[in-house]
């Protein structure tokens, strides 16, 4: 086994196990910390694909900012076992069934997709993920969707400020 393959399997196992722990953990703070681990494992995968920019942005934005805000809110809420609402068994069952259905659909879609059939991810080489190439691509071929999404973010930000403001 090549070293890339070993790293790949390690990261995949880490990602899947942490993702399961996110759901299984009793304490919400633990769930958030497991989710941070998931993001790290995914960033590791990006680095294997030589997409360094996406890897680090994933860490800065998700692990470094959004998850900190999640922790922030969770730590301020007093989550005791007594205050937690009792969950209905039927609710849990329907959750499992609908989640399973989604999983089946996703798997069947991936199996049928012809675009990715027979293609192997390029590890360690390829420079599309490097910041120079990515920047040129974003600001030439994809400049319109890029700018539209930035306007969308701006409007979301302004909306949040308006909602948060005491009148």
């Amino acid at each position: 086994m090549a070293i890339t393959e070993i790293i790949f399997w390690f990261l995949s196992a880490l990602a899947v196990i942490s993702a399961i722990m996110v759901v299984v953990s009793k304490s919400p703070v633990h769930s958030v910390l497991w989710l941070v681990t998931v993001f790290f494992a995914i960033s590791g995968h990006y680095i294997l694909l030589n997409a360094q920019f996406i890897a680090i942005v994933n860490i800065i934005v998700y692990a470094g900012a959004i998850m900190v805000l999640f922790l922030f809110v969770l730590m301020l809420m007093n989550l005791n076992k007594e205050t937690e609402p009792q969950k209905n068994l039927w609710m849990k069952l329907t959750g499992v069934i609908s989640g399973g259905c989604l999983l089946i659909i996703l798997i069947s879609l991936i199996r049928q997709a012809t675009e990715i059939k027979g293609k192997i991810a390029i590890t360690k080489t390829g420079d599309i993920g490097l910041i120079k190439v990515l920047g040129k691509e974003l600001f030439s071929n994809y400049v319109v969707p890029f700018e539209i999404s930035s306007v969308l973010f701006l409007s979301a930000m302004i909306g949040a400020v308006v909602i948060g403001k005491k009148d």
Binding site: V36, Q52, F53, A55, I56, V57, I59, I60, A63, G64, A65, V68, L71, F72, M75, L130, I131
Partner: peptide, 20 residues
């Protein structure tokens, strides 16, 4: 690495976990 200074930012943004 290609992303140099962004890496520093990534690590700095993780430093807050220790405190929290």
């Amino acid at each position: 690495i290609n992303i140099g200074i962004l890496y520093v930012f990534g690590v700095v943004s993780l430093g807050v976990y220790g405190i929290m």
